[in-house]
Design a protein around this nucleic acid. Sequence first.
DNA 1: CCGCATCCATTATGATACTG
DNA 2: CAGTATCATAATGGATGCGG
Lengths: 126, 126
Amino acid sequence: MEKPPTTAYADNPDVDRLVSDLIGRVADKWTLLVIEVLEQAAQVRFGALARAVPGISQKMLTRTLRQMERDGLVRRTVHPVIPPHVDYALTALGHGLAAAFCPVWTWAETHLAEVEAARAAFDAHT
Amino acid sequence: MEKPPTTAYADNPDVDRLVSDLIGRVADKWTLLVIEVLEQAAQVRFGALARAVPGISQKMLTRTLRQMERDGLVRRTVHPVIPPHVDYALTALGHGLAAAFCPVWTWAETHLAEVEAARAAFDAHT
DNA sequence: CCGCATCCATTATGATACTG
DNA sequence: CAGTATCATAATGGATGCGG
């Protein structure tokens, strides 16, 4: 059934599951990296994205961008010229998510050494 | 827009790639959901985790917890009793990561309706 | 009984070649 | 240049078994 769009979803199991699903889709490795690149430049072309996200394949980049477009995170602009020219830019929604992810990047930069130390200790322990 | 906030070593390509790798490992779907559950209760047993993270398989839960333990995010405590009793708890590092992910959860709760509307609009256009 | 490792079917991902 | 199609490979889930 449909629920009215209330802001107080506190501990509703249904909403909680929807939020979990959304987190699961948005907290994808490639999505995060693409958001990070798009957040630092207003508009980025497909090739530039492929270059800026090291290790991503064309298929995954395409799929990730389509998914983000469908979720309203990015706006895809096609310029009908030859050769083709396609720009990707974050929407307001996407910028909000990028801002929400900012502390995660800060955490990763700050605690990278600790994580590597923990890994070394764990590997030595076994 | 403005110049993005950078740390002292954010412009180092090597560190940038290490941070990307760390993000890629930590921004896993199951890792995030497990962190969320562990952040709300001090100690959680394996079975309780499997129940609290809907849709996860036992194998993925085991693998996710091992990886998080190796990265120093969780501490695994085995009580040698019968039946077995294994508690998982976030370390200080894990709590920091949970706190960093907090805005992402807030964003997901706040903008869930917008994402669903964007999906409906995208699906209608195609 | 609980945690977790192993076998197999399904799916997701990567590398390459090709089209508009 | 942007995106698709195809095939090889790795990741994942489900069921089962086993030790404590």
